[in-house]
Design a protein around this nucleic acid. Structure first.
Lengths: 374, 374
DNA sequence: GAACCAATTGACACCGGTTACCATAACGTC
DNA sequence: GACGTTATGGTAACCGGTGTCAATTGGTTC
């Protein structure tokens, strides 16, 4: 009884529209709705309501009668209307763009992060804008600032290593833009952090190798200025210590997260007496370097030397023997980061995602480890 | 004599502004100009000209007297004004976003393409929005269409394999959005294409291996539905033929661009008599598979078997021995793609890039090949 | 010195949404 | 039936730019 009354009376009030509006004609004869051509005015006219009401429907305002809402929604669906993000953004004084800011982790890492973030952004009307930067260059923060302010970004995802820069985080907070930092430890309020728990992974590697029977171990870390390196290596050392094995400092080599530094580190470490029977390299690239050094020295893997890496890069399963390594569900991480940013956003176009669960790394066991000989 | 006259008379005409505008105050006492807060109205008021004139300056219109232009530009610089891309986009009925559409090449490829495109976009006011898609899913084109139309994209970069889809290209052309397709051969008008010349690279591999003395060769291709695979493999076969070597069909294995298919292919091919002394795998992953199969069979590389890959992925230099492979300057490719899209855009903020040069693949010789024994 | 022309410049409406504020209708209560 | 609430919709102004077109300006011509 309600809807027809309203609808008809209003329709008469409206400016007399031709029987078929331009927009509708476009979709005639096509299975696909004509997308991107109609405006909120068309919707209002065709639905026999005001712009304002359509706007309320778009933004999920409670001040719309359910049947009105449904009618408008159905119409929007039918003519393939989607609000213009630019116009909306202009009025809202912000955009529907999320920035992904990073400086230099591996390609695999970046791409998976992107996939994950996009998983969460799909059908929300938000888009992902990539923004690599060089955190070593003077004034890079100013560049990010300009980016954020010009685009009026809705939010920013920071991934290592820039995520560790407190100055950058402070700058973002000053600008009152939401951000999420992905890092190995808590550097910020929980609502702005996503932890990768690298320390736990380091401990897991220690436990695994110790339980295989290894007693002479060695460690190749990343650069000490990387938080991740400290956590991974630190966890490994702590884990061994908990099991009664003290790793002496000359069993630790500071690498650079590069293949070459892995080679160099292994060459040094494998000359020690007694020779280590297992090496934990803090990323896969360095582990590949260990392979190279070991093979050149005539050592077989895992016969003479067990190796564990970190990252589970494609490389890990393509080495021979396949490398046991720490796997981190990066895509999940990206998804969660985006979800955190979107949390509390009222009118998402898709279904609201379930609250996220913690993401933790775990050891992916392959063929590069076995109990030591003898 | 001119400028002051104009300035003063106009200034009087304008709405009486307070001596210091809000915007200017913001930048006082800070080395950095306050960015993102001022509007075209502020600039107009402070410069004593109309909005429209400022707009003309922004857009490099020739209808502005040089001294007026300079005065306005200086002011914009001083107060750190940058036009709002959303407002501009709304008025222009298009955005300043470039879409990067891809479906599934390797992470390295995607990331380098992004870096390249961003190189060209830096300081132009344009941003890069990533949009992976699944070209195997029904109606994926509709998804890209919605993306393009909703965001009113300025242009789109298509990279393999979606770049090979003519239906998608047609759809984009229908929507009148600029695009550039990156593919191994010319699939479109030159102004919309960027070729990777995979065939030439295949020929180069053939020449190289033949010149080392190999006569018993084998080929592991990618899936035949990939244009790149056809070109790489075809070039190899043609190149050998030109040098008098006919590659019989059972020396060709159709792989899937995956590590496992490389293993399987090598296992098959290495059982032939006479055993091939060299294998060209159409990407590095498969080449890594060849390594695994060969090593398992007790063959040494390059002593018993020479291997060439394609892509120059990080993997290539991290295998042992390091893999000789085809290197393609993907970052350059990305840069050029973006430059092509931006070509003819009147008011870029940065300097106009030099016209681009052709990008060609070349063989990067490492340690995985040597003349055959005996 | 008036007329005229080209070069500049500005007033105003508009892009497609939003908010602020007000008017109206529907509903239940007394 | 008057009245206060609550729900709903309408109007106008605005977000920060652009297009259109008329008005102003300066220099030139006669």
């Amino acid at each position: 009884m309600n809807s027809p009354r309203k609808a008809s009376s209003k329709a008469i009030k409206q400016t007399p529209a031709p029987a078929t509006a331009t927009v509708v004609q476009k979709s005639v004869g096509s299975a696909m709705p004509a997308v991107g051509k109609s405006t909120i005015n068309d919707v209002a006219r065709l639905a026999g309501v005001s712009k304002k009401t359509v706007s309320r429907v778009i933004n999920d305002s409670p001040l719309v009668r359910p049947d009105t809402r449904e009618r408008v929604q159905a119409l929007m669906q039918q003519i393939g209307y989607a609000p213009d993000p630019q116009a909306r953004g202009l009025a809202f004084r912000r955009s529907f763009l999320i920035g992904l800011v990073y400086d230099n982790p591996t390609a695999q890492y970046i791409v998976n992060m992107q996939y994950g973030a996009l998983d969460a952004l799909r059908n929300t009307g938000f888009e992902l804008v990539v923004h690599p930067c060089d955190s070593k260059s003077e004034g890079y923060i100013q560049g990010i600032r300009a980016f954020v302010q010009r685009q009026k970004l809705f939010g920013v995802i920071l991934i290592p290593r820039v995520s560790e820069d407190q100055d950058l985080a402070d700058a973002l907070r000053d600008m009152e833009v939401r951000y999420v930092r992905i890092a190995s430890i808590a550097l910020d309020e929980p609502s702005r952090m996503l932890q990768t728990h690298d320390r736990l992974a380091g401990v897991e590697v220690a436990n695994y190798l110790e339980s295989l029977g290894h007693r002479h171990l060695a460690l190749i870390t990343g650069p000490h200025r990387y938080r991740s390196s400290i956590e991974r290596g630190g966890g490994f050392i702590d884990g061994l210590a908990k099991r009664g094995i003290q790793l002496s400092t000359d069993c630790v080599y500071e690498g650079g997260y590069t293949f070459e530094s892995g080679v160099a580190g292994a060459e040094r470490l494998l000359q020690r007496t007694p020779r280590p029977t297992a090496i934990f390299a803090c990323n896969d690239e360095m582990a590949a370097g260990v392979y190279k050094a070991a093979l050149r020295m005539g050592l077989s893997i895992p016969g003479d030397l067990s190796v564990v890496g970190y990252d589970d890069s494609p490389l890990a399963s393509q080495l021979w023997p396949a490398l046991s390594t720490i796997h981190l569900p990066i895509r999940d991480l990206g998804r969660q980061a985006a979800q955190i940013l979107l949390a509390g956003e009222p009118a998402l176009r898709g279904p609201r995602p379930a609250p996220s669960m913690a993401v933790t790394p775990h050891l992916s066991v392959r063929d590069s480890c076995q109990p030591p000989k003898g």
